[in-house]
């Protein structure tokens, strides 16, 4: 793993690009309807936490930055097919902008730690940092008080805690299933296409 932020090999480049796509896909309706079609649930923050856990702080932050640029260019990559510059001005813009520092903090705290450390990293970075930015912006945009905005956000906490647990579980599973995950370039011997989908 490169420790300097701007020295990216092609392996890093490809992983960052694919994780941007992964976060986008997790927001697509139809790709994953855990609770059926009726509830519009977004797993994108789950993707943000996973990016931090698997890519490490800098590459994860870059993946989110690429997502911002593509969304700003008008591609509907956010949950519910949202895209365009409008999303950066809405009431939930702070939550969206919190993804970047959030993913960085998740990656920074997680390191190569075990399940408990991964979970703690997700809770602090994926919930603490994102809500820390999201709530004040929501309060400012809607004109409601800080306390009221925080109260409204409480409804999303249980879902996000569940996502943090899942992200830590999945990241642990990925490390066991694909040990080449730590350094970017070298590939595991078993790279038959389709082997992962069994």
């Amino acid at each position: 793993m490169s420790s300097k932020p701007f020295t990216l090999g092609t392996g890093d480049l490809a992983r960052v690009a694919v994780f941007t796509a992964l976060i986008a896909v997790l927001g697509l309706p139809g790709a994953l309807n855990v609770f059926g079609n009726a509830v519009p649930i977004t797993l994108q923050t789950f993707g943000v936490m996973l990016a931090g856990l698997i890519l490490g702080p800098w590459r994860a932050a870059l993946a989110i930055l690429v997502l911002y640029v593509l969304v700003a260019a008008g591609l509907p990559l956010l949950a519910g097919g949202r895209g365009g510059l409008g999303v950066f001005f809405g009431p939930s813009a702070g939550f969206l902008l919190g993804w970047l520092p959030g993913a960085w903090v998740v990656g920074w705290l997680a390191g190569r730690g075990g399940f408990v450390r991964l979970l703690a990293a997700c809770l602090v970075g994926g919930i603490g940092v994102i809500y820390g930015l999201g709530i004040p912006v929501q309060a400012a945009v809607t004109g409601a008080g800080l306390g009221k905005a925080a109260l409204l956000s409480l409804a999303f906490i249980p879902g996000d805690v569940a996502k943090a647990v899942l992200a830590a579980l999945v990241a642990g599973g990925v490390r066991r299933a694909y040990p080449a995950v730590a350094p970017a370039a070298p590939q595991a011997e078993d790279s038959r296409p389709g082997a992962a989908q069994r």
Binding site: T10, G11, A14, A21, V34, A184, S191
Partner: peptide
């Protein structure tokens, strides 16, 4: 969700690494 997440991420990483090698 675990049976969805692990194969999806591993598949995505495999794709990324193949892509990286091609580049």
């Amino acid at each position: 969700v675990r049976a969805f997440g692990v194969p999806l991420v591993v598949g995505a990483l495999r794709h990324a690494d193949t892509l990286g090698e091609a580049l």
